[in-house]
Design a protein around this nucleic acid. Sequence first.
DNA 1: TTAGGGTTAG
Length: 591
Amino acid sequence: MKCFDLMWKKPAVESVNGLLIQIQQCSISSPRTLPLIHARIIKSHCLQDGFLLTRLAHAYLTSDTPAPAKRIFTHFPKKPPLFLWNEMIKWYSRNRCFRESIDLYYLMASMGVRRNEFTFTFVLPACAGARSVLDGRIVHVDLVKIGYERNVFVATALVDMYCKCGEIGLARKVFDDVSSKGTAIFNAMVSGYVNNNEHGMAMAVFDSMQNSGVVSDAITMVSILQSCASLGALRRGRMIHDQIQRSSHLDINVYIGAALINMYARCGSIEDSRKVFDEMPDRDLISWTTLISGYGMHGLAKNAESLFTQMINSGIKPDAVAFVGILSSFGHCGMVDIGQNYFHRMTKEYRIEPTLEHYSCMVDMFGRAGKLDEAEEVIRTMGVAPDSGILGSLLNSCKLHLNVQVAERITEHILSIDPENAGWYVLMSNIYATAKNWNGVTKMRVLMKEKNLIKPPGWSSIEINGEIHSFLVFDQRHPDSTAIYDVMRNLESRIRIEGYVPDTSCVLRNVGEDLKLDMLCGHSERLAIAFGILRTGEGEVLRIMKNLRVCLDCHTATKFISRITGREIILRDSKRFHHFKDGSCSCGDYW
DNA sequence: TTAGGGTTAG
């Protein structure tokens, strides 16, 4: 009894310092035992010690156990310290609870709690994650009032937030107002332009970064390589690759590796992609997937399949994205049976739930191969609501295999989902035009006019000596315009002699044949090819980019051009690559 | 005791 009394009256009280050390050790080695220490704190009557509680809550948050941390925060003796507010805002933001993070910031502000630079660098990413420029602007106004806009961490978070919200102009203003810029803020601006599809601007900021002597790191390179990939700027991409290899502080890590593989593939040089892949010291799932998709884009489904098998044999498990890559490769090449087999393996062997993207690949695969019924069946039975993309892919197949009936049904469905997109009206109109159904053509044109819809113009570009030249349809703005049109007409007459027969079915209007022929000749890819022939030497490969799909007639014409000029022409359109050589195309006309 | 920017498909 005596012994019990003694224990009861004098519990084993542990010192605050001892508990602090336990928290520190525990949060590193065994965060699961944190509740045990929590219990000791309660037992030791240390619940009034703010510093100790803060460390405990912090340890809970670091080990992703927010519930007890929240309880400590809510029942904090007197007021929780600024540090704990910040850590709570950070935890919510990093765990994609953006609204909670932002609301906690508002609570803080309404209670008059002091905010510091950390508060802003934690809440701004939450505004970015929520894509809420409204909240972002409120926080921005707040931080200017308190005087943190010159802090480079805060400014970087602001730039990133505005970019992610699509407000690139506001981001640029913040960026320009920072007087002493380091690598990170430059990176935020470059990647902002990249993600907003302003690749020319990304290049310009990158150039000014290099000119002002700010060090580029791996993140800079990954971003700028994306721009090279999007612009098809192979020469520029090679220069960046050189710079990476020469640099003493940059290694080919998995990020840079994937960016390089992607850049070379999208710039038409899949051999270089392979070289980068082979030379990478470490590869992850994304390195493999990038090259597999690259092969797919280039119509090299056999290479894609062999690489996919090698990947599995090397112990890497494919994910949903890897399957999109391999399935789209098969679709592009008309390998329907193998494609179906892989789709089956994906669901049964790898237990990957198919998404709309996978179904899209299957629809495309069946559609291109002329199996329109099977393609429609996929859409009907997939159990996911179709989007306009998957229906559009089927509509495109209806054009390839001219099936007006199915096309009309699909168009009705597409327009109920996406009525403001002029592309669908144009596609259906083209199908009518191919079937010489001029009433149908008129119907689509009237519908477009009533809705005031304009199809975004097609453009093509070509890089000559590191400079990108872009052409719109019937473009006459280029200084060499007269010479370009001369080259093009000369090519047209030469390929006619070789047997090229123009296919005017992709000319929308019901006009005379002569005018239709003129309209074909003005296609942007034709202008870019003519310019390439004009400005490059024999034997040089022409690399052209087009924002839309290459039309059937330009495809045929380019095959002939490659034959009569002996030129290799690599044309990348919105879907994939067409590699023309000696009168044939790598895509096997499955586009 | 707390910070910023990055890779693959369609």
